[in-house]
Design a protein around this nucleic acid. Sequence first.
DNA 1: ATCTTATTATGCTGAATAACACACAAAAAT
DNA 2: ATTTTTGTGTGTTATTCAGCATAATAAGAT
Lengths: 233, 233
Amino acid sequence: MHERTYNADDCIDNPKSVFTVLTPKEKEFLKQNYTCAFYKKGEIIFKEGDKPLGLMILAEGKVKIFKEGVGGREQIVRMAKPVGFIGYRALFAEENHTATAVAIEDCVSCIVDKDSVFRVMRSNADLSMSVIQSFASELGFSHDRTVTLTQKHIRGRLAESLIFLKDTYGYEDDGLTIKIYLSREDVANLSNMTTSNAIRTLSTFAQEGVISIDGRKIRILDLPKLERISELG
Amino acid sequence: MHERTYNADDCIDNPKSVFTVLTPKEKEFLKQNYTCAFYKKGEIIFKEGDKPLGLMILAEGKVKIFKEGVGGREQIVRMAKPVGFIGYRALFAEENHTATAVAIEDCVSCIVDKDSVFRVMRSNADLSMSVIQSFASELGFSHDRTVTLTQKHIRGRLAESLIFLKDTYGYEDDGLTIKIYLSREDVANLSNMTTSNAIRTLSTFAQEGVISIDGRKIRILDLPKLERISELG
DNA sequence: ATCTTATTATGCTGAATAACACACAAAAAT
DNA sequence: ATTTTTGTGTGTTATTCAGCATAATAAGAT
């Protein structure tokens, strides 16, 4: 982890963040209580068991959050993008982290210290309500994933993961390429399958003309068909 | 659903509920804004797609909350007990319900209307913070379950479910019998397996002396062994 | 009381998918 | 540049578990 000059004010002022409900004064207060850190691709941002130090805002880069299961097998539970929070579940649950966060690309993350976050939340009910709404949505998403990962077949699980990645990160300028470049192993860990089966099923999708593959670059050629595969299970 | 005279003041005054952080005045306000309903065993309390009307407090009885997956297959995502909330995820996410709640026993549920709940939450930061903490814990639990249900083998999943039921509902006076009586189908839907396999695996556990079965009454005879089965996967 | 339906129990078969083995390509380290 | 490591692709085998059938029992309905 390297220190670097980075301006997190952008995060706090970002119109897409939950901070829009804050008063200028409250924003100012937060801006005086954060530090920034730079993480190289592949670096661990926090590990299962670590104590959360504050509210981490992902300012740049992409992050995977996963849990270690049976025999060290990874299950990705969340994919974070800028501008978004990471590690906030443990912070608000007053627990140590129960998952590990790893940078998928070079990342910049800003930490607002815990006391400052809590103070602003107590002073601004709108912020609390936004956080509650975020948690409630995230919990719904988690329940959905549980059902998908346990009930759908490999093809359905992979199709849903690809759609999820597209919805989360969007397309490149070509309007086809999913704007994230994951290893086959990560795709597998997101979709609850072995790496071999992720590779095989991606190839099959490509043969069927649903997607095209160029290394880690995945282009969705036939979204309706991909959605049908996802629905069918 | 039958109306019945029931005193929900007990719920709001219950020392185990999140309402302990409220002032007497706020409690009084909530007590003036709730209605109670009675549900017979097997009755639906709310269904996937329904609009949440308020914050439901389960005052008496036990409730299963499940989602319908591929081919109508149920996945139980939560088991509620008194005094606890039900249907609060959708309420706070400002969505329709994404799961169905069914009474496992005769139940009494009190509904505090949405506006009143939100008003008190805006006036009392402690309450909001408690709700946030609850959501954060629940989300952690959901992530745990996802990993368990996808990665552990049948025996591990069933063992974990039995431990979960014991932790949630406790023992009968004998200190052995799990204080909930589920059908084999519900046990299966909690553990992501077919009814046949739930029956089979329960029998195996009984043969091995880990539990004993008497109809729907399950007694845990060897908790350490059950925990070991759960850990191993 | 008796009929009907739901639940529990058990065996058999087949499909889905994990596990393993190996080859090859690409990237990183020396 | 060359060695080592990491990632990708493909075939084969083994295992787990779902699906189905059938019977016995228990619970509800008429």
